[in-house]
Amino acid sequence: MRFLFNLVLMLVVALAVGFGLSYYALNDGRLFGAVQIGPWTAWPRSGLPAPDPYTRAYLARTGALQLGQGEGMQFVATIDSDGNPLNRACRYRIDGNTPTATFWTLVPIAADGASIARPDGPPGFESGRIARANDGSVQLYVSKTLAPLNWLEITGNGSFQMLLTLYDTTIFTNTGTGPAPLPSIIREAC
């Protein structure tokens, strides 16, 4: 009886560690190849000819057409800067400076990748078509309700993600000081 109990315990521990660690590696992934800057996460080796096994597994899981290393870098945010999951019932302010890039886009999407922007409006923000502060920083609003400055109206209910894609960027090529900071995602009202 004792042997059976130990055997079951071992299998439970093995399955929990095996699948739990795999789930963590492919979702959070910070210990396994993903880079997190504030609420934004990217897999910098996803655009290499021979990505590491964790990046390869992440790409297989998402099925996304990743950018090549020479094209740019894509960041995903599923949480705001306080660590709360992004929810369409809330209004979010994306505030701060973006790293050097030829241009960038910011698109809100559902978990399946579908755009959740208003059907007859723009699908997201494009860096060349927004108003900026005098210091070059941006203030973008994503919400279902009217917001000032640069506002993107979203639809539907439930959680969502934000995709920030930097094209022709130097974010991971700065020497010595690490990657440049990315804008904060601040929840203003729900």
Binding site: L11, V13, A14, V17, G18, L21, A57, R61
Partner: peptide
């Protein structure tokens, strides 16, 4: 301890075979 080691093996198999 054996369960943890077996779990690490399962993890490696999952990551390597997923693609």
């Amino acid at each position: 301890l054996g369960g943890i080691l077996l779990g690490l093996a399962i993890h490696l198999v999952v990551i390597l075979t997923l693609p």
